[in-house]
Design a protein around this nucleic acid. Structure first.
Lengths: 107, 107
DNA sequence: ACAATAGGCAAGCATTCACTTGCCTATCAA
DNA sequence: TTGATAGGCAAGTGAATGCTTGCCTATTGT
């Protein structure tokens, strides 16, 4: 799709810049569909991250804005799923030799 | 090489977080072996980035710390080359495991 | 030698960012 | 209902970051 291009690029890289957010992605890759509290307890238990619930919530919002996390609501629960699709533009930007025409880069 | 692991991960993602640094990577991907002044003029000409030489120098230092840029000195010139090797750990970290989940990735 | 070129080092400033604190809404169980 | 759970919103704070300014060293050309 043409999504995850242009303007979203900045959100994507900024989302990946924080180590806590990368750990959250690791947790969602290991078990998808986790709630906010489940992620919080996992960060505390497995990674010894003393972090508040609101901080994790803000991290999830950043990841969602970058398209790396998708959410679905069910009752009072909100489940979070990992979406690795935006990551492919990283590989497409520099890892592939530039064979195409004058491709406009997205800062 | 065993480099580009562990501690370097944070430097890598932080280096990619800035749009100016990503543009520098684009320029080095298009033409390798550029000097500081050459990169400066390209950022100014092609990308309309009014940025000082020192700022570009600092960006290059960050990129070099992340392993994304390698340098070689010849006389009073310092040439910069792109190294995309560190980028592969991004794909290897999240793109590989896709056995679980609701199976809604890659629409 | 002298000046121009290519680059480096360090302090200061302004913005951004991660995190906390406090309070609020919505859903479910007793 | 009441209370507990799951989550959201907004202001404030301290640290990190991007950029500038000023001065410095090294190399090259005349």
């Amino acid at each position: 799709m043409l999504a995850y291009c242009g303007v979203v690029a900045d959100d994507l890289f900024k989302a990946l810049a924080d180590p806590t957010r990368r750990t959250i992605l690791d947790e969602l890759a290991e078990k998808s569909g986790q709630t906010l509290f489940e992620i919080c307890s996992r960060l505390s238990m497995k990674h010894q991250l003393g972090i508040s619930r609101q901080a994790v919530s803000q991290h999830l919002a950043v990841l969602e804005a970058a398209g790396l996390v998708e959410t679905r609501r069910e009752g009072r629960y909100k489940f979070h799923d990992l979406n690795t699709a935006p990551l492919r533009q990283i590989a497409e930007r520099w890892l592939v030799p530039d064979t195409s025409g004058p491709g406009k880069s997205a800062p």
